[in-house]
Design a protein around this nucleic acid. Structure first.
Lengths: 353, 353
DNA sequence: CAATCTCAAGAAACCGATTTATCGATTTAT
DNA sequence: ATAAATCGATAAATCGGTTTCTTGAGATTG
């Protein structure tokens, strides 16, 4: 029975076929630009397509082709500039190759991360770019390996032979930070990080430690690592200063940590760089408009996304061979929050002009 | 012919069926918990499912059911805290209802916005939450109406009878800002905004103007609106101050504008609130840890997301009736960047403790 | 003029599920 | 003992496409 006119179901390939007076197979061929269709029929198909506003259902077509043109992206959160722009880039690169990007957030939970990956698997995505909550040994990566999914791991990742990995060179960047700070005369540092992000934190911390040890063997590096949440970190930081510890420079290994440090400085009435210097891993737009501007390590988001997609598509296209690890170099933006130690007993002036 | 063992194709419902010695129809019934299956067969199906690690392909199943359990979300960008947390919330709410969220960014381009919506339409998503680049009259919303897609418009939206809309009460929030500033004695304001975001900007601007006119008829409200990019705005702002204009308070109608204003203050060596006061629309994490802390209007992201999904699912379930507009109230966080006018001729001290 | 080749088009199978309709075996009713 | 009702299971149709295979008409060749 014919559908009523008001029926708003979309036109299918069969509707186009009957409208054009040809078979669905012919319509399919026309849509794919196969040359073995008589020009007259091509014409009629196009007319029907325009008339009905027909567009193929990509999911139905993928079903038949047994290959989904979908890339999954899993990040710990959407809220940060870093992962926000990462997703933007991945989306751009996937679409550039004719794929759709489906992004999901694991919300910093390994359990959820696994569920999200199971969903990606159910969707039969062609490949996954995963930024793990913790590192390459989490349940999500394990799931990917067990299900033989093709994927690339980014960001919070050290090394694995199961997947290609791409991340920024946190150790190298931290060495840059160390060089700058030591060069200015600093000899007592505090480094803070979140233990859960084991992969990145360890890299960055060890890179810093190694560089400091080489450049200034007499220097002291204190470390505060909180397990999973920033609040314990805030408390530990407070205790640390309350004990009377007075490092001349603080290096925060992750972006939210930089905020925590700043708020603790506020609470104590300390100003950068006169009372203490500050460098944070991860740059943000606001850091260049505040007083003082905040020095930061800039991660090469576009390079990471580009390399990840590059590698992912190679694997999707069937390239074999051992998995590779790629480190992208970071830039260090020195800003007003860093100065020589003991810049002044009076807190206030600082970097102001 | 049997597949080789190494073949990594996923098990389909037919694989399960033959393994369990039943038909695919029976497997389908078991998976859906239909009761008319003999317990013995239920058992065998479960065994086969576990053995093969079978999980239904949701896209294939949706195809047959002619109803996709997918919600599309389209936002202008992923990079901002506002849209980042918006997407996070929408994802949570969609999953809570058994749907998957597919998020895409229009990258502040109406052209791309339309393309993204066409893709959502191709995917036959059940519904769309669209945060338009400009307002409810853009080509994307027009496309949605023409294709009779079900959707909800959020954020940069005034009024339309084609879709339900949800946004924050920018006019009300701006009135709050006006009340605070006028109460402190301010009589000369500068408001800055981005013209492209016509819907929200107009609301916020008019709300502010109306409140000022009522509370202090003698007050002066200058306005700088840039068309599409922030750089022209930066230039206009520079010219404005260069002309010798000296408002005592600046109200930025959008978050990136707040950054532009701050950077211009930096350039001129002005400090809040002694030299000038500042309030921004849209709160961000960093605003409470800087010197000074920045006063901001907080948008109720969760409420907006919640209302949007609520309404969207009602429509998906077939609810008819005229479209509704919902305004969610904002909070105003007064912080150190705001003070009485003429707080001090000397720039420097400001809000520092 | 008959046999072969080309070409375009369509019928049918298929992807992985769901759902309807049918069917055979029991069970119940007459 | 026969007819009717019940039950569980499956074959087949379907969703919207793609792809293989077949077919028939017209062109080419011997």
């Amino acid at each position: 029975m014919a559908r009523s006119v008001a029926e708003k179901r979309r036109a299918s390939i069969h509707d186009v076929a009957s409208r054009a007076g040809v078979s669905a197979a012919t319509v399919s061929k026309v849509m794919q630009g196969v040359s073995t269709v008589r020009p007259e029929n091509v014409q009629r198909v196009y007319e029907a397509v325009n008339l009905l506003g027909y567009r193929a259902d990509p999911l139905a077509s993928d079903l038949r082709r047994a290959r989904r043109r979908i890339i999954g992206a899993v990040v710990p959160e959407f809220e940060s500039e870093f992962f926000g722009s990462m997703v933007t880039e991945l989306e751009r690169l996937a679409e550039q190759r004719g794929y759709a990007l489906v992004a999901a957030s694991s919300r910093e939970s390994e359990e959820r991360e696994r569920e999200v990956l199971a969903r990606m698997h159910d969707w039969r995505v062609a490949g996954v770019v995963l930024a793990p909550v913790r590192n390459e040994h989490g349940p999500a990566a394990e799931f990917m390996r067990a299900q033989r999914m093709t994927g690339v791991l980014i960001d919070r990742v050290n090394a694995t032979d199961a997947f290609d990995i791409v991340s920024s060179d946190g150790a190298g960047a931290s060495a840059l930070v160390a060089r700058e700070l030591v060069g200015l005369g600093h000899r007592h540092f505090l480094v803070i990080g979140l233990g859960e992000q084991a992969a990145t934190v360890r890299n960055r911390l060890e890179g810093f430690r190694a560089a400091v040890a080489e450049l200034a063997p007499d220097a002291r590096v204190d470390v505060i690592l909180a397990e999973s949440d920033v609040e314990p970190l805030r408390g530990a930081l407070r205790d640390y200063f309350a004990k009377g510890e007075r490092p001349t420079a603080v290096y925060s290994l992750f972006s939210r940590g930089t905020l925590v440090v700043l708020s603790e400085f506020r609470r104590r009435g300390w100003h950068c760089p006169n009372d203490i210097s500050l460098v944070g891993f991860d740059d943000a737009e606001w850091m260049q408009v505040t007083w003082p501007t905040i020095a930061a390590v800039v991660q090469p988001v576009r390079q990471i996304a580009g390399q990840a997609m590059e590698r992912l598509f190679r694997r999707i296209e069937g390239e074999e061979g051992p998995s590779e690890a790629r480190l992208e170099p970071c830039r260090l933006l020195m800003r007003e929050s860093v100065g020589a130690p003991g810049g002044g007993p009076h807190s206030g002036g600082g970097a102001r002009r």
